[in-house]
């Protein structure tokens, strides 16, 4: 009648950081899904928008797609080198990813500039309203991604991707990192949470588990940021044909 067994399920095996990122991506999918879905519905009702789409330069759009896809590749390379613990290469690939993100933004602003100089603004008509809203929203995500990658890059430069070997530790933890904390508290012996209080920076100079974000090395965050970066990439893969190739 009543089952009284002890521990049959250990719920602490998923990395909370990865789970958090996936949930974040889930919510972002709903946001972009809402925006892109609205665009598709209205686009279907307005075949005449093809004329506007014709003003967009497919070569420039394709170049941007290529840049973003390549940056996803370098992100993967950075993650591969996390496993090899090759700090130099990690830094190099992170920087390459961030630079390609910046190139993407540069090309995007060149396109925006071209539109503005031809008198095309978000309020020109509904197609351009959607164009600027969707690409602008995407650009904000690119900026967020670049910021996260550059923060990880500085961690790499200062050799703080992994905890120092015992005895060498004077390294300070620096900023808590981009976006999300990875503190695994499913394991009760984990000392990373002390009194539920966020500490002023002065405490951060104390070497200890806190500096690696709760027992997990900063390097683990490269995978999380990578997931996010791929998501940003995928959004562009949807936007590019919908906006550029429907002329």
């Amino acid at each position: 009648m009543i089952v009284q067994t002890a521990a049959v399920e250990n719920s602490g095996e998923i990395s909370t950081g990865k789970l958090g990122i996936w949930w974040l991506i889930g919510s972002e999918i709903m946001i972009f899904g809402g925006a892109i879905g609205s665009f598709i519905l209205l686009r279907l009702a307005h075949p005449d928008w093809a004329d506007n789409a014709g003003h967009l330069s497919v070569p420039i759009g394709s170049l941007n797609t290529l840049v973003l896809l390549t940056s996803s590749y370098t992100m993967v390379k950075a993650f591969e080198n996390v496993k090899k613990r090759d700090r130099k290469k990690i830094c190099r690939f992170l920087l390459a990813t961030a630079l390609m993100g910046l190139v993407f933004l540069g090309i995007k602003s060149f396109e925006y500039h071209g539109k503005f100089s031809h008198g095309i603004y978000p309020n020109t008509n509904l197609f351009w309203a959607f164009y600027f809203t969707l690409t602008g929203l995407h650009a904000l995500h690119v900026i967020a991604g670049i910021t996260a990658i550059l923060i990880l890059w500085t961690f790499g430069l200062r050799d703080r991707l992994w905890p120092p070997a015992p005895g060498t530790g004077t390294a300070s933890p620096g900023s808590p990192g981009p976006g999300i904390d990875i503190i695994d508290i499913s394991n009760f012996s984990d000392p990373s949470i002390r009194g539920g209080i966020i500490r002023p920076n002065v405490n951060m100079s104390i070497p200890g588990p806190r500096w690696s974000g709760g027992g997990r090395p900063i390097a683990d965050r490269i995978e999380l940021v990578g997931l996010y970066w791929h998501f940003v990439d995928v959004v562009w893969i949807f936007l590019f044909p919908l906006l550029y190739l429907t002329a």
């Binding site: 946001i31 972009f32 925006a35 978000p122 509904l126 309203a129």
Partner: peptide
């Protein structure tokens, strides 16, 4: 909530940027 966030962005732009979603 995601689609409504997208909707709210469009509503905001209608108000401040003169778009006509």
């Amino acid at each position: 909530v995601g689609p409504l966030i997208a909707g709210a962005i469009m509503l905001l732009l209608d108000n401040v940027a003169g778009t006509g979603f």
